[in-house]
Simulated scan of single mutants.
Amino acid sequence: MTMAGKVICAGLGPGDPELMSVKSWRVLQSARHIAYFRKAGRAGQARAIVQGLLPDGVSEHPMEYPVTTEIHFSDPEYNRLLSEFYDRWADTLAEIAQTEDLVVLCEGDPFLYGSFMHLHSRLQGRAQVEIIPGITGMSGCWTATGVPITWGDDVLTVAMATLSEQELTQRAAQTDALVVMKIGRNLPKLRRALTAAGRLEDAWLVESGTMPTQTVRKLTDVTGPVPYFSIVLLHGQGRRP
């Protein structure tokens, strides 16, 4: 089947529009259709990054999640709702791509924990797909601390705070450098895990990395709730000349 258009997923980088790649910026300049994920009632972080960069008359397709943290991801209903959501939007994107290019906006890098990967797997054989990589959100956050995340032979582990307390403890104890994502309501559990691993004093928390609202704090100085998309970092201390 011949298709005149394609789906282009543009990695937008960690949040600061100036950290977007030239390639993603060029694609946005000529976009006729854009799609982006967002929570219902919110503008969407990806859309906020490209504010003022889009051509006049671009058609926007906000993809609103049917559920985010309202029910746990282990609940069968969570998977059912999200599966239907991705199926429906894969159909929509594939239809548009039959005749025109469509740009899907993605914070960070599309292939690193990005929601687009669930559309990517559903679009195979149905539409041409191009991925434009981007600077990851975690890279923007560890740079914000002003300290290298790894040295020499350091092993870097990336973990989700949604893991069990036992596994978080084990991961923190067995790695040199650590990035923990998806914090939010998981912060008390993560604190306990880092304490058990003997690493709480070394942890940093970064919110809104590279953006105007960025904050960088030692985790021991943090009180109260934090956003789901904040990141906790432990820097490696490895070999160096």
Rank of each mutant, 00 (worst) to 15 (best):
A35W: 07
P148A: 06
L12I: 05
T162M: 14
R26V: 02
G224S: 04
M3E: 15
V158Q: 08
G52P: 04
D221A: 14
P110Q: 05
T143M: 10
L93G: 04
L93F: 08
F229S: 07
M211D: 04
T150Y: 05
L93V: 05
I71Y: 08
G44Q: 15
T157Q: 14
A203N: 03
Q166L: 15
E64C: 07
Q124W: 12
E130T: 11
V232S: 00
P212H: 03
R32I: 02
G125A: 05
R26T: 11
V58H: 09
Y86N: 06
S74H: 13
T145Q: 00
E77H: 13
R26F: 08
V7F: 01
H72L: 12
P62K: 05
P212D: 02
G198R: 01
M117G: 06
A48S: 13
M211I: 06
T2Y: 15
S59A: 15
A193V: 03
P227R: 10
T210C: 06
S83R: 11
G140F: 06
S230R: 10
A159T: 11
M211E: 14
D101F: 03
Y228T: 06
T68F: 15
P148G: 02
V50G: 02
V58L: 14
N79S: 11
L168A: 05
G11I: 13
L19M: 10
P66S: 10
R32Y: 11
M20E: 12
K39C: 13
G209D: 10
G57P: 12
V158E: 06
G140R: 09
M3I: 12
A193K: 04
R88H: 08
P55L: 11
A144L: 07
L205C: 11
F37E: 13
P76G: 00
K23H: 13
